[in-house]
Computed example of a mutant assay.
Amino acid sequence: MIRLRSSFSVALVMLASASLAQAADYPNKNIDYVVPFASGGAVDITGRMIAEAAPEAFDGKKFIVKNMPGGGAVVGQTYVSSAPADGYTLLAMTSSVINNSLMKDVSYDLDSFTPLALYNLDPEVIVTSAKGDLPDLKAFLAAASHGSVSIATPGNSTSHHIAALALAQQQGLDFRYVHNASAAMQLQQLMGGHVQAGFMSLGEAVGPAKDGNIRILAVMDQARSDLAPDVPTYQEVTGDDVQWGTFRGIGAPAGLPDEVEAELASRLQKVLTSPEFIERMAAAGYKVDYRDDAAFRQYLDKTATQMEQVIPLLESQS
């Protein structure tokens, strides 16, 4: 019995030593950063800004952005969930991780990932084509109250689709959904006048709105954003407190050694809170709202609980 305990203790020490050695040697090669969406959307754009800033905090090692679209992010998320938990495969995490695990037949769930950092909380906005016949929120709501309004989404069960479903239920609105394969395609639908309106994140909408291609009708947040100070909140116009938004963060496969997780989280904090990165994000229309690995995990758990309450709306649309 004494020998068994001694052997077990030796094994634990060896495992701990190996983990510490792995952390001390990290990083010794480039890191794959998987974006589970097509290029051109907010997750891809902000991911590439992270990749450009990463080498300084990662001893010169690069973040290699790999776009893996498909299945509403299922392809990329499946890939990362089954990748080695060694710190060399990271995932651009959005609410789709939660939505897909709750709504689709996938091989992973939220616990299949290690949350490392949240870097952006982006309020939802309602937009129309700049050339459309819905010039403001009141006109949009009137049209959706007395008839069907076509709504472009970046995909079925995405956070933007869910935001539209939730608003339609709360306010008694009638939407006809046109699902696209990406945020870029959603924007093309709007700009081309193929649909009347859409739901997207503020960060995605600011640039096209400044270029005169789309019109932002309202921000679904507590206060106006300094990124679009002339756009009213939904509550300002209607009196109803309607809030919705999306998040962007970074995760890894579950099972990361504690020391590697700590090393990754620390280095990511340097990247995501640097003045240069914050300035670049702001110039592109994205506000940095950094939360560390523990706070990100809490946020994910809360969001998952909220999503479970919205599932019946999604199921009614299927």
Score class of each variant (00 low, 15 high):
L190N: 03
A142K: 13
S148K: 13
A142W: 07
D174C: 01
H146D: 13
A163W: 01
Q186R: 08
S101W: 03
S95Y: 06
G155H: 05
D133Y: 03
L167H: 00
P154S: 11
L137Y: 04
L110T: 14
N100P: 06
K131Y: 09
D122Q: 09
L165M: 13
G132A: 14
V149D: 00
S107Q: 13
G155K: 03
Q189N: 14
N120Q: 15
S150M: 05
G172A: 11
L118F: 08
G132T: 04
K104P: 00
L134D: 01
I162A: 08
K138P: 01
K131F: 09
V127K: 02
G172C: 10
A143D: 02
S145M: 08
L190P: 01
T153I: 11
S101F: 05
D136C: 08
P115F: 06
V106H: 00
A183F: 07
I162E: 00
H160W: 07
N100G: 07
Q170H: 14
L121Q: 09
A164K: 01
L165A: 06
Q171A: 15
A166H: 02
Q170R: 15
Q186A: 08
A117K: 02
A183K: 01
S145C: 08
H179K: 12
L102Y: 03
Q169P: 02
I162C: 00
L102H: 03
Y177F: 15
V127L: 09
